[in-house]
Simulated scan of single mutants.
Amino acid sequence: MSIEVKICGLTTAETAHAAAGAGASYLGFMFFEPSPRHLTFGAARRLNPDLPDGPERIGVFVNANDRFIAEAIDAIDLTWLQLHGSETPEEVARLKDKHSLPVIKAVGVSEPADIEQASAYYDIADAMLFDAKPPKGAALPGGNAVSFPWHIMQEASLPEKWLLAGGLTPDNIAEAVKLSQASILDVSSGVESEPGIKSIPAIEAFLRAAKAVS
């Protein structure tokens, strides 16, 4: 099984090129102000010309409106939308049609029932992202460096394309893949030296580890 990787929360050309050079299939950019990984539109426009070709560019949004999403798409030439808020299946379908881009719908998971409820999106979203539910009181819907019981994915009804996120690091990739049977991994805080600051050695280590279990 070949493992694909999304490096999320990128804010610099240097780390984006490191991710692409090490084999990342997807680069994620966060458009959510409370996040330490947030990109302003101005920063995204400045970053855009220096980004590597090849990997898909995914914009991460949390209950964003049409104008906000459209401006982000224009700023950094996004090829996917990732919806990480409380968007309903109807809203996911509308945004997908409105912006003419494929959509990843993220859902928080702590038990099998959470995965079952997510099935309402399977016929609408182009991919699902299963992330750990944020800790009580957390300000962010993801990037909290916590995981969920990965083994519950094996017994769940899953869509054709899905990503695993939550608490992933270079050291636990092999276990995560073994227990969940995921083929696409999404990492953000697990390759940082501090919140919002990506570590090139950690990015490279994560991708080496992913290739080792492929």
Rank of each mutant, 00 (worst) to 15 (best):
I152R: 08
G196P: 11
S119D: 13
T11H: 06
E194V: 00
V191L: 06
R37N: 07
A43L: 13
S199M: 01
A138K: 14
E91I: 11
L51K: 00
S199W: 04
L83N: 00
W80A: 03
P36F: 01
K133D: 01
E33F: 02
V191A: 05
S2V: 14
D53L: 13
D77C: 13
Y26R: 15
Y122R: 11
A138W: 12
A106F: 01
E155W: 12
F29W: 12
G108P: 00
G142F: 09
N172L: 03
A176R: 04
A125D: 09
D186H: 03
F206D: 03
I197D: 11
A16H: 06
E14N: 02
L158Y: 12
A70R: 05
L163C: 06
L39V: 11
C8K: 12
G23R: 06
T169F: 03
G196E: 08
E111F: 00
A127R: 09
R67V: 14
D53Q: 15
E204G: 10
F29I: 14
E194L: 12
F68P: 01
V109R: 01
V103R: 02
S193W: 07
A13W: 01
P134C: 05
F61S: 01
V62R: 07
G9A: 11
R67E: 14
S25Y: 10
L27A: 08
L83I: 01
L179V: 12
V109I: 07
E194Q: 15
A22C: 12
A145T: 00
H38S: 08
P55A: 08
A125W: 02
G137Q: 13
L158K: 10
I197V: 15
P134W: 02
P141Y: 00
S214L: 02
I184H: 13
E160K: 15
I69F: 05
S157P: 00
K211F: 04
N144S: 03
G142Y: 10
L81S: 10
I200S: 10
G108D: 02
P89I: 05
N63K: 08
R46K: 15
T12L: 06
I173C: 08
R67K: 13
L47K: 07
P34F: 05
R208M: 14
L207D: 02
S35N: 05
P134T: 07
E204C: 07
F68K: 06
Y121S: 07
I69Q: 06
A132I: 05
P52R: 06
V92A: 10
K178Q: 15
I124M: 01
E204P: 04
G108R: 02
S183A: 12
A120N: 12
W80F: 05
G108Y: 01
P201S: 09
A18K: 03
F206M: 04
T12G: 02
G28D: 07
P52W: 02
L158F: 13
A212G: 10
A16F: 00
A132V: 05
A75R: 04
T11C: 11
D74C: 11
A13M: 02
S35V: 07
E91V: 09
N144F: 01
N144E: 07
L27H: 05
